[in-house]
Design a protein around this nucleic acid. Sequence first.
RNA 1: GGGCCUGUAGCUUAGCCAGGUAGAGCGUCCGGCUUUUAACCGGAUGGCCAAGGGUUCGAAUCCCUUCAGGCCCGCCA
Length: 554
Amino acid sequence: MSHRGDKHVIASGITPSGEFHIGHLREILTSDIIKRACITQELDAEFVFFVDDADPLRKVYSFLDNSYETYIGHQLANIPPPDENGIPDLERFEQGISYAQHFLEPFKKSLQMLGVEIDEYIYNYDAYKSEKFSDVSRTACNRADEIREIIERVSGRELDANWFPWNPIDAKGCMDGITITGWDDPFVHWLDSDGNAGRSDVTKGEGKLPWRIDWPAKWAWRGVTMEPFGKDHGAAGGSYDTGKEIVRLFDVEPPYPTTYEWISLKGAGAMSSSTGVTIGPLEALRLVPPQIMRYLITRNQPKRHIDFDTGNALIELADEYQRNLAETMRENDDGWWGELSRRQQKAWKDMVSRIGYAQINSDISSAISGFAQKIGNSETTAYLDNQYFGLSKITFRHLALLAQLRENDDAVWESVRRSGLIHEIHDGPTENEVHRLQLMRNWIASPHFPDGFRLRIQTQISELAKENMDPRDVEYLRALAEAFSDCEWDWGAINNHVCELAKERGMKLRDAFQLMYWIVLDQDYGPKLASILEEMERDAVLSLLQSAIDELSA
RNA sequence: GGGCCUGUAGCUUAGCCAGGUAGAGCGUCCGGCUUUUAACCGGAUGGCCAAGGGUUCGAAUCCCUUCAGGCCCGCCA
């Protein structure tokens, strides 16, 4: 992009016709990342977000009440927001909240949480009204024949004889069913669906340009040099292809394109796409820190399809982020860098760059990506402060277990401290870690949390235990039950008995623990056994042991 | 019918634009930590780069064909 000059305008545009989802996030984050990359290259870059609230409501979506029927064809900035039942909320509308704003506001909030810095929000409806599109609109209407030729040739479809590059609104504010009857600069004359004649001044925003012209008009007006867009626009004959020719009628070069793939939702129980349930950015940010959502985008190339999965894969993604973040902090004091092959060096730099752009704070982004450039060229030691970058030794995987095991937050940190995972540099959890625990608790409480990670504490002898227990284990279990019946019910005592009694009998600890995991969790292995038992009622443990003993004695 | 994107180890993928011995992570397996086992550390396993053909001294990378998946060409953002 640097070949195209030092100043860049990166644009994104979204129609606020309904709930925003993480697919929209990809569009915005892609722009955000490009902007940051420009700045790292010392190019001047700004990010403008076009809110397409001049578009009409296309249909009554499933989340809307049928009463929205009357608003079909009306501009989104001009119709009331739905209430929680999908019914038009006239009260809020009177307070100035439109349909478009209703959906946009929460999205803006999530962008803020994600550290996306948008230099300017452009509300299309207002832009037309305030005559920002006057010149391009008149040009378009005056050169309607050329535009028609471009669209017909490039997209290969024939336009209606009455087609005209302006969608006027009728007296009721509707855009549908209007027939253009003439053009008399700057007025478009028309007949509405009831046969009423009227005219619209295209310089006053009485209507809008149709999408295929509206888009290049935005480029021309705002000087857009770069814009990522969904693969639908990017297809041959699609709106980018027509747009890049139309924009030349306005004497402007088209922006540099980047197409990105869709994000789909991987089916996980109730979250399958077939139920029509999508996950919104705010909802996702209640499960994982914002860096993880950014990392989801940065680790995948735009052209790759992403299957977003709020279960297992998200935990793995989060841990991968953490691992790589830690790797980023590596110091080049033992010459490891020089031992890497060239490919490995490049892979490492790419990885660091992806971690860099996943950061919320753009200064940290630059610091990390700058580091990626420098490594290997010079001494790079004592590079950063772990706390500052939110590094933690506690994996999400591990935190998921602790959060289930300990209802009390302090008990979680106590356990972490005992296992030495809280880093030496601080005594307690960092702010970042406290936040992560809160998110993890949200996640566990939600239907998105993967079943495979849920602890399934048994109340009676499990099938796995039945299949695998050895008759010789019964003596050990009896001894354990006896010891448990009157020992201190804490982590140390429990652990001590499990180990001591096993050693006395010459059992391998590994086998003893596995036996207990079969009985307690119906699994081959699990998290710290004593931690689980400690959280269980003593009687529950004893009764479980008894049922195992009964099974073996039978 | 026309066109675009994707297809690399069990899984997720880097590398492709500017050809030069296929890089990771997860998983799996083994070893260590002998009071642990979704933790941590070390090691290993694993790819005829979708298929076929061509160009080249040399192709995952360039060209052609085929197959598979996704998408667009319906004023629809």
